Computed example of a mutant assay.
Amino acid sequence: MPPPALDLIVETQPLPYEARLEARPRAQIDLVVVHCTELPDLATAREFGERVLYAGSGTGNSGHYYIDRDGSVHLWVSPERVANHTRGYNPRSIGVELVNTGRYPHWLHAAHQAMDEPYTEAQIVALVALLQSLVDEYPSLRSIAGHEDLDTTTVPAEDDPTRQVHRKRDPGPLFPWHRILDATPLKRLTP
């Protein structure tokens, strides 16, 4: 049985380029992709999110929602817009980023692939509440995946080009998939 719903408070702080992101119909959204920021804190994630990486559109990379270690939930891109968070899945998905160091600051070093920061209880409780809210708001939402499920690309390690490392490993081995799947009607999508 799912836990009782938490009163979800979402702090809305649109990214400067949000209006430039492509609009989409609500019915197109059928997937949530869970990420970890692989950065030290929410402020650094915001700095990365505000960077314009695509000159043609004036946009950058960002999830829709961010959940800080204290469980606070922040909306940076409206779900009715296509955010750039997972190659090949952006038009149909909502990206949820959990603040976590992951492999920071040596993301692609072969010697630094451990992801050993546990997610906080507050983050997991907030994530469940957010997912329950999204399921209620978007009837077509049926699936959930980790970034690592959808982007399995390997690249040469920066510290040893003879070794391959995964480009994306988030949310990583410490993410409690069983809790999330038990608490929501979403089914895990693994291509």
Rank of each mutant, 00 (worst) to 15 (best):
residue 72 S to Q: 14
residue 96 V to S: 11
residue 180 I to F: 02
residue 21 L to E: 06
residue 12 T to L: 07
residue 85 H to E: 01
residue 152 T to H: 07
residue 44 T to N: 03
residue 169 R to S: 12
residue 117 E to W: 03
residue 53 L to T: 11
residue 98 L to M: 13
residue 103 R to I: 09
residue 150 L to M: 04
residue 143 S to H: 15
residue 102 G to H: 06
residue 113 Q to T: 15
residue 14 P to C: 12
residue 1 M to R: 04
residue 179 R to K: 11
residue 71 G to E: 10
residue 148 E to W: 10
residue 191 P to I: 01
residue 170 D to Y: 08
residue 25 P to T: 07
residue 167 R to L: 04
residue 170 D to A: 02
residue 38 E to D: 12
residue 2 P to A: 15
residue 47 E to W: 02
residue 31 L to F: 03
residue 28 Q to Y: 04
residue 27 A to P: 08
residue 89 Y to A: 08
residue 57 S to K: 13
residue 168 K to S: 10
residue 58 G to D: 06
residue 4 P to R: 10
residue 161 P to T: 14
residue 66 Y to C: 04
residue 90 N to L: 01
residue 104 Y to G: 02
residue 34 V to K: 00
residue 15 L to G: 09
residue 42 L to K: 09
residue 49 G to H: 11
residue 67 I to G: 00
residue 59 T to S: 09
residue 143 S to M: 13
residue 184 T to K: 10
residue 144 I to R: 01
residue 126 A to C: 11
residue 153 T to R: 13
residue 2 P to S: 15
residue 55 A to Q: 09
residue 143 S to W: 15
residue 115 M to R: 12
residue 153 T to I: 00
residue 2 P to C: 04
residue 53 L to M: 10
residue 58 G to M: 11
residue 172 G to E: 08
residue 188 R to E: 14
residue 61 N to V: 06
residue 78 S to C: 00
residue 126 A to L: 03
residue 47 E to Q: 14
residue 27 A to Y: 03
residue 130 L to H: 13
residue 170 D to H: 00
residue 117 E to I: 03
residue 121 E to H: 14
residue 81 R to F: 00
residue 116 D to C: 08
residue 26 R to G: 07
residue 102 G to A: 10
residue 25 P to V: 04
residue 25 P to K: 13
residue 81 R to W: 01
residue 8 L to R: 12
residue 80 E to G: 00
residue 159 D to E: 12
residue 185 P to H: 14
residue 69 R to D: 07
residue 165 V to A: 00
residue 21 L to Q: 07
residue 127 L to C: 06
residue 147 H to E: 14
residue 169 R to L: 12
residue 48 F to M: 02
residue 29 I to T: 15
residue 186 L to S: 10
residue 132 Q to M: 07
residue 19 A to G: 00
residue 99 V to D: 06
residue 66 Y to P: 06
residue 153 T to Y: 08
residue 82 V to N: 00
residue 101 T to P: 03
residue 17 Y to F: 14
residue 76 W to H: 09
residue 161 P to Y: 02
residue 110 A to M: 03
residue 181 L to M: 01
residue 110 A to S: 13
residue 58 G to A: 08
residue 105 P to E: 11
residue 28 Q to D: 05
residue 84 N to F: 04
residue 53 L to E: 12
residue 109 H to A: 14
residue 120 T to K: 01
residue 37 T to P: 00
residue 148 E to R: 04
residue 97 E to C: 15
residue 60 G to I: 07
residue 6 L to W: 06
residue 101 T to G: 05
residue 123 Q to L: 09
residue 27 A to S: 14
residue 161 P to W: 01
residue 81 R to L: 07
residue 49 G to M: 08
residue 65 Y to E: 12
residue 64 H to I: 08
residue 75 L to W: 03
